[in-house]
Write a protein that binds this DNA or RNA. Structure first.
Lengths: 361, 361
DNA sequence: TTGTACGCGTTATCAT
DNA sequence: ATGATAACGCGTACAA
C-alpha cells in the first residue's frame, strides 16, 4: 500500500479502485459489495464482515458520481443563503453540520448574494444534482423562486418567518412577536422614545420594522424619524452616524432597538466614546445574541434567536421528510429575550423571557 | 412550460430533461448539444445560438453526476477546515466564493473538527469525487494526511504557515514574523512584561507561541508563567480568569499578546469592568483584525491577516494550476500591524507597519 | 463542423 | 441470499 511512488502521480484519477476490483478480490459479484456497503441487512453476516474488512484494507471509496447516476440521488443537501459571509452564519452552519454528521448526506453551500436571479440560477443547478433536500434562506419572497421551489424534486426547507406559508417546510421564528417582546421590555423598564435601526432589509428585518411601527403606533409613541437604515458594509463602525442622526431627529431619544447585535455593539462603543451613559441615558437592545453580547460593559440586552437550532432542525426535517413528504409544515423555534445591563436602569437580576416554541403548526 | 402541475410532484427526479430530448427538439445529435454547452468554439456560431436558445427555453440543466462520471472530473473544490464554525471563516469563505464565481467550479466545505482522523476520512471521500482541487486548512502536520495529499488526484492548496514546505501548493503568512512585529511594536511603545494568551492550539498558534518564546528570551524578558491557555468554548468570556491568572503570575504585567481578537476583546471588557486602564496600565494586542477591532474603546491593536485573500488566492491557485501542476509553490500573503489605541501610551497617529508579501517562493 | 460507438462505476430489476 | 443484465446521462475517441 505504502509502496511505489510513480513519478508525481502514483494513483491518478485514471486508475481508482472500483467495485469490480474489490469484487474480484473478495470473489463475489460487484452488486454484493454494493449491498454490503449500502444495505448491510441484505447480505449474510459472515460475508458482510469479510467484505467490509477488505474494503477497509484496500481503502476503497465509492464513486459518488456513479452512485448518483445509478441511484438517481446525489445524497446532497443544498444550502442557499445570503448570509454565508455574515457572522451569524457559522452558528447555523454548525447546526447543519452536526445534524448531517454521519447521515451520509453531503452539504453544499452557495451564496445567493441577496440576488433573486442568482437564487433561481443556483436552484436550477441544484436540481441538476438530484439533491436530497434544499435549505433556502430566502432573499425575498420572489415568485420565480417559489414557483421553482414548488416543483422541486426533493424536500425543501425554508428558513423563514413562521408567519409565511412555506412551499414545503419551514423553520423560523416569529419576528413580530420577538420585536414586540423587545419593545415591551423597553417600555417596562421605562424607555419611551425608542428608535429602530437596521442594517439589512431582508424579510426578518422587514417584519421587525413593521412590528416596530405597529407596536409603537399602538402605544402612541411612533416617530418615523427614529427609523434609521445603516450602511451594511461597516455595521459596527456606523455608530457615530447613527447616533447623530437619531439625536438630531429627537434629542430626547432614550432607547434604540437594532436589528443586529453588531449595530448595538457599534452604538455602545460610540456611547462610551461620547460619554453617553448606557443604560441610563440610552437603552440598547438588539437581535441574535452573538458571543460578545454577554461580555460588553454593560452587557447587551438582546433577543436570542436559535441559530444553531435553525440549521439543525432544517437538516432534520429533510432527513425525516425524505419518505413521507408532508407539505406545509412549519416549526417555530421560539426566541428568548435576554435582558442584560444595556437596558437595566435599576439593578436587577438577569431575566430571560423565554418564548420557546417548537409548536409544530 | 408553466402548465400542468401533476399532483404534488410535477417533474420528479424520474423524468428530468436530458441531453437526448434537447437534441431531438433541436434536430441534431446529443453530442452537439454537449459541445455547444461545454466547448462553444467547436460548434458553428449559428447552430450554437439556436441550441443555447432552446436550452434556455426548455430550462435544461445538465446532470452533474453523469457529467462527472463521463468526464472523470467532478468540477468541485473540496475545502477542509476546522475553522468552519469560527468567526474568522466567513471572510475566507467570501474570498473563496468570489474567486470561484463563474468558473463553473462548485465548492464543498467540510468541517474537520480538529481531528486528523476525520481529515483523512473526508479527504478520501473527496478523492472519490474526482475533485478539481482540495483546499485544506491543516489541523496538524499529520503524516497520514500528508501521505494522502501526496497522492491526491488533483491540485492541493494548503492553508499553512509559509515556513512549512507544502505538499503541492500553499498560501499563508509568516506567523513568526507576524509575532515578532507585534512584540517589537509592544516593546517600541514601552511595554516590557508581556503575556501571551491562546485559545486554540493549531499550527499558526503554535508558531506564534514559539516565536513569542524565542523573541522574549532573546530580549531577556521571557517569563513562562505569562503564557496562558484559554477555554476555547467561551473565548470572549474568559477575560476574567485570564486576568486573574496573569496578574497572579506577575502583578507588574503590562501587556498581553493574544492569538485571536476575541481574546483581546474579552480582556478589554474585563479591564473596563475592573477599571484597569488600557493602554496605560495594560496594553492589548492580537491577531486577525476582526470588524470590531477598529471600533472598541480604545480600538484594538492587531496584526491583520488577509483572510479574504487566503480564500481567494487558494482557489486561484487551483484554477491556474489545473493544467501545469507546478509543485511546492508557496504564496506569502503578508500581514499588517495595525497599531491602534490599545497599545498607544502616548497620543499618536494610526500607524500600519505593512509587510505585504505575495513574494512567491 | 458534426456524428457514431462506447464506456465511466454504480445501482435497479429481475432472476435464481 | 446472491448474481446477471441493463440502464443512469453524459463525454471521449475516433470517424465521416
Amino acid at each position: 500500500m505504502t509502496g511505489g511512488r510513480v513519478g508525481k502521480k502514483s494513483r491518478t484519477a485514471g486508475n481508482r479502485l472500483t467495485l469490480n476490483e474489490v469484487a474480484e478480490k473478495v470473489g463475489v459479484s460487484p452488486i454484493t459489495i454494493s449491498r454490503a456497503l449500502n444495505k448491510p441487512e441484505k447480505v449474510s453476516p459472515g460475508l458482510r464482515e469479510t467484505i467490509l474488512k477488505i474494503v477497509e484494507e484496500l481503502g476503497y471509496v465509492p464513486d459518488y458520481a456513479a452512485r448518483a447516476l445509478a441511484s438517481r440521488s446525489g445524497n446532497t443537501i443544498g444550502v442557499l443563503s445570503s448570509l454565508l459571509g455574515s457572522n451569524i452564519f457559522p452558528r447555523v452552519m454548525k447546526g447543519i453540520e452536526d445534524r448531517a454528521w454521519g447521515s451520509g448526506l453531503r452539504i453544499q453551500y452557495v451564496n445567493t448574494r441577496y440576488d433573486p436571479a442568482e437564487e433561481v440560477h443556483q436552484l436550477k443547478q441544484f436540481f441538476g444534482q438530484k439533491p436530497s433536500g434544499i435549505i433556502i434562506g430566502g432573499v425575498q419572497i420572489d415568485p420565480r423562486v417559489t414557483d421553482l421551489l414548488k416543483d422541486a424534486p426533493c424536500p425543501v426547507v425554508q428558513l423563514l418567518d413562521i408567519s409565511y406559508p412555506p412551499v414545503d417546510m419551514a423553520v423560523g421564528i416569529n419576528n413580530r412577536a420577538a420585536t414586540e417582546a423587545a419593545l415591551r421590555h423597553l417600555l417596562d423598564v421605562g424607555y419611551r422614545r425608542i428608535g429602530f435601526c437596521a442594517s439589512r432589509s431582508d424579510i426578518p428585518v422587514q417584519m421587525r420594522l413593521e412590528a416596530y411601527r405597529r407596536f409603537m403606533t399602538a402605544e402612541g409613541l411612533y416617530n418615523p424619524a427614529l427609523e434609521v437604515s445603516v450602511d451594511s458594509t461597516d455595521t459596527i463602525g456606523s455608530g457615530g452616524n447613527t447616533l447623530d442622526q437619531l439625536f438630531a431627529a429627537d434629542p430626547e431619544i432614550d432607547a434604540i432597538l437594532c436589528d443586529h447585535d453588531d449595530l448595538s455593539l457599534g452604538l455602545l462603543f460610540e456611547c462610551q466614546r461620547r460619554g453617553i451613559a448606557v443604560p441610563d441615558r440610552l437603552g440598547l437592545c438588539s437581535f441574535t445574541d452573538l458571543d460578545y453580547c454577554a461580555h460588553t460593559v454593560p452587557p447587551l440586552t438582546t433577543v436570542r434567536t436559535p441559530l444553531y437550532q435553525l440549521g439543525y432542525r432544517a437538516v432534520d426535517m429533510i432527513i425525516r421528510g425524505q419518505d413521507k413528504r408532508r407539505q406545509e409544515q412549519t416549526i417555530d423555534l421560539g426566541f428568548e429575550l435576554i435582558a442584560r445591563g444595556s437596558t437595566r436602569r435599576s439593578v436587577q437580576m438577569e431575566v430571560s423571557d423565554t418564548c420557546l416554541g417548537a409548536k409544530t403548526l
